[in-house]
Design a protein around this nucleic acid. Structure first.
Length: 460
DNA sequence: CCTCCACAGGAAGCGCAGGAGT
DNA sequence: ACTCCTGCGCTTCCTGTGGAGG
């Protein structure tokens, strides 16, 4: 048997016209049903184009409601304008500490700086310095602010704003804050999934305080989160500074979802490939899961792959249904297999106990058991899970982590929606957490055990 | 009411990694 | 090559919490 060549693979018939359109990272020219939100963001950021500091903004909305897409869309438009405004997108899932965020900002905006290896204070200083003195081009000119801060406004500014009205307005606001306006950059930092940052209060404090210290230029924060309760975790100070401006992205309604799906289907697939029934089913499935457009796109894309595999030129409701099953297990698989080892082991321990309990006793061992589950699913006690986790660790020859760290893992798993926990109430001795798994325990067990056997066989 | 239990979660500190400065 | 500095993951220690049981 000889392996196929690339040209063979590429010449295979396909239902796709442009796969990129179906990627969650694709930013379309027009975002349907988000005009109002986009306008609000644009209005909020417009001061940056006039050389003023835009107010911070907190954007909330469930997954797949177009938050990130809309913000990126606006950033694209902002970049088209010649101005001192610069934006920096930070995905806080990857950059999840104050240090990493600041490092990312300096690296992104001032590539000339080799930001590795500097301490936080050093990075902060560099960032401030660059913001104060650079014109919107590079980080070369360094002495502009020194003069400007010294006294008169320098006359050699940007060569735009020609009309008299503009000049008058400019002079007026110059008088207001003569010092702040000269030269410095208007930095807009987008913190996506901002709830993932560990020392979020410190980060927000650092960035907002920077504004007080800057002689020119400014920093504006746009926080994006899908958890509204995130606000309550913030300190008083951070909350009022981040939430100067709030924007809520509502979930897409079923008809809206249907329109989005058919729009993307038209762009992503060849003409007449996707049947109406398929679009309707995709919209219905997604509608159940509270209007997550990202999920709908994944569904479409997968349905296309399935059609290609089968060698057919139509996508019907049958392919969408198949795609649903496949995507569901994909999502769980991805979420679980990208977890750090010990979080996987904790999850495996939970899955093991869940399966045991399902077979043997029902509720948690407590005498009355009235606090735990009104429904028939059993809850696990934190302590017994830790014991099982210790056993599982031994089995895979990984030294177990301390109980303290194990509790952090539980918090992380809960944040990711892989488990749910509640506080023990009456009927339970002491104060503990009751744990339940979010995905089918058997599937989770299979995924993790497979993962570890792959790792082990690779090591051997 | 007091004590015990079974934990939650904050604080401090430790060792390591990786870069800068000498 | 070394010393110093910093962030990070982790452990240890400690205090707090809330129900059970005497």
């Amino acid at each position: 048997m000889s392996s196929p060549s690339f040209s063979e693979i590429l010449s295979k018939p396909t239902v796709f016209a442009d796969r990129n359109v179906l990627s969650p990272h694709y930013i379309p020219e027009t975002l349907p049903f988000r005009d109002k939100e986009i306008e609000k963001i644009m209005v909020g950021l417009s001061p940056a184009l006039k050389g003023e500091r835009p107010r911070n903004m907190f954007i909330y909305g469930k997954t797949g409601t177009g938050k990130t897409c809309s913000v990126k869309h606006v950033m694209g438009k902002l970049a088209e304008h010649k101005s001192n405004a610069v934006s920096c997108y930070v995905n806080c899932r990857m950059y999840n500490s104050r240090y990493r965020v600041i490092q990312k900002i300096t690296k992104e905006l001032f590539p000339s700086l080799d930001s590795m290896g500097f301490g936080l204070a050093m990075l902060y200083e560099k960032m401030m310095h660059e913001l104060e003195c650079s014109e919107a081009g590079g980080s070369a000119g360094a002495e502009v602010t020194e003069q400007a801060a010294g006294g008169k406004a320098s006359p050699k500014e940007e060569p735009r704003a020609k009309t008299k009205a503009d000049e008058a307005r400019k002079a007026e606001s110059d008088a207001e804050d003569a010092r702040k306006k000269t030269g410095g950059r208007r930095l807009i930092v987008i913190l996506d999934e901002v709830d993932m940052v560990k020392e979020i209060d410190d980060l927000l404090y650092t960035l907002t305080r920077a504004n007080d210290e800057l002689k020119a230029g400014s920093i504006t924060i746009i926080g994006i989160s899908n958890r509204l309760t995130f606000k309550d975790q913030l300190g008083q100070r951070s909350r009022s500074s981040l939430c100067e401006n709030e924007l809520i992205f509502p979930s897409y309604t079923p008809p809206q979802m249907q329109a989005i799906i058919s729009q993307r289907a038209k762009m992503g697939f060849k003409p007449h490939v996707v049947e109406d029934a398929a679009v309707n089913l995709a919209a219905a499935i997604t509608g159940q899961d509270v209007g997550d457009a990202r999920y709908a796109l994944k569904l479409l894309s997968k349905a296309g792959e399935i059609a290609d595999e089968k060698g057919i030129s139509k996508i019907t409701d049958r392919e969408v249904e198949e795609a649903r099953r496949s995507v569901e297990s994909d999502v769980a698989f991805e979420a679980i297999s990208t977890l750090p080892d010990h979080q996987q082991l904790v999850l495996l321990a939970i899955a093991n106990l869940m399966l045991d309990k399902g077979k043997n006793t029902r509720l948690t061992s407590g005498s009355g058991g009235s606090a735990a589950g009104e429904d028939d699913e059993p809850y696990l006690i934190s302590g017994e899970v830790y014991e099982e986790y210790s056993k599982v660790s031994r089995r895979f020859r990984k030294p177990r982590r301390s109980a303290r760290w194990y509790r952090e893992y539980l918090n992380d798993l809960e944040m990711l929606g892989l488990i749910t926990t509640i506080e023990s109430g009456a009927g339970m001795r002491g104060r503990t957490r009751l744990i339940r798994i979010g995905y089918p325990a058997a599937d989770v067990k299979k995924i993790i055990e497979k993962n570890f056997s792959i790792i082990e066989s690779a090591v051997d």
